[in-house]
């Protein structure tokens, strides 16, 4: 078994430093994005999540000419954008689409400016591609610990808010009746979302960050009836997508005679396949529900 595994994965796979960094940072991003993505989709914030990813590219590009850590750049701008979204009323269904669009337009504009500065001041022409599409194998190992901390902070926020968030997602009015402040819950969720998206932007690139956020969670929501099951499935699918993508990209170096395909491409392809496979699984689940589970004892009327 072990020999077989080692043969498939090539011995050098786990020995390579960049691969280990990519596996760790990408894994963090996958887990946080999966958990927060479930709530994001249910709140109807998929566009907002994507916009935060795109906007955080401004931070990524600023980090090039400011010389700060890219994670700090992504995180800072994403947090600012999250607060502007809240200010423009992303919580109200009526305004959410337009508010997100405005923040996205302004943020991408800022990103254009910073990338322009990158090109003119530091002559790094590849900055646009790196920021937009990510380059997982070029991640600096010094990012591992900050990524883990951001991941833990994001997961901590969601697990503390788990029940109020769930109720607020199900119906804000019901949540308000129980004394939950939808405003605070929404704001903290947006901040956690900003953290998750910043991590994803760091690993698969800011334009593709929403793939990790939306894909696994959307696929998981189709096949599960319970919140914790949905979250567990999302985590599993997210990890499979990211780690599978990294492995395929690593292997593709051998397939295409030294011309490796990008990690982001494989990650997204796996995620898209998962979402499409969700439909037949959903049919199976429907069929299973019709044969209702027996009730526990002592619940008869």
């Amino acid at each position: 078994m072990l020999v077989w595994l080692a043969h498939i994965l090539h011995f050098s796979f786990f020995h390579s430093g960049p691969v280990r960094t990519a596996l760790l940072v990408g894994g963090c991003a996958a887990v946080v994005c999966a958990v927060i993505g479930v709530f994001t989709i249910l709140r109807g914030h998929a566009f907002a999540g994507h916009a935060l990813g795109d906007v955080s590219s401004a931070g990524g590009s600023a980090s090039f000419f400011l010389g700060i850590s890219p994670l700090a750049g992504f995180l800072g701008i994403a947090a600012i954008a999250a607060m502007s979204l809240e200010f423009l009323g992303v919580r109200r269904v009526r305004d959410q689409d337009v508010a997100t669009g405005i923040v996205l337009g302004a943020g991408l504009g800022l990103s254009a400016l910073f990338l322009y500065f990158d090109i003119t001041t530091t002559s790094t022409t590849g900055a646009a591609v790196t920021v937009m599409f990510g380059s997982m194998f070029a991640l600096s190992p010094s990012l591992i610990w900050p990524s883990i901390i951001v991941a833990i902070l994001g997961l901590g926020t969601v697990s503390v808010l788990y029940r109020p968030l769930l109720l607020s997602v199900a119906d804000p009015e019901l949540a308000a009746t129980r004394g939950i402040s939808n405003r605070w819950v929404g704001m903290l969720h947006l901040l956690a979302l900003a953290g998750a998206v910043a991590l994803a932007a760091l690993s698969v690139g800011s334009v593709l960050a929403s793939a990790l956020l939306i894909g696994p969670a959307a696929a998981a929501l189709r096949v599960s009836r319970r919140p914790c099951v949905a979250i567990s499935w999302a985590i599993i699918l997210g990890l499979v997508a990211v780690w599978g993508g990294i492995w395929l990209a690593y292997e593709s170096y051998y397939w295409f005679s030294g011309n490796a395909w990008p990690v982001s491409f494989f990650v997204v392809v796996i995620i898209f396949a998962m979402y499409l496979l969700g439909a037949p699984c959903q049919q199976l689940l429907r069929r299973r529900v019709r044969v209702a589970e027996p009730l526990p004892e002592g619940t008869e009327r």
């Binding site: 249910l42 029940r163 319970r226």
Partner: peptide, 18 residues
């Protein structure tokens, strides 16, 4: 992803943290 049972459970303790 909420069953009726989960919604009722949230009615019991939906406002609690953690």
């Amino acid at each position: 992803p909420l069953r009726v049972f989960d919604l009722v459970l949230l009615g019991c303790d939906g406002h609690r943290l953690g």
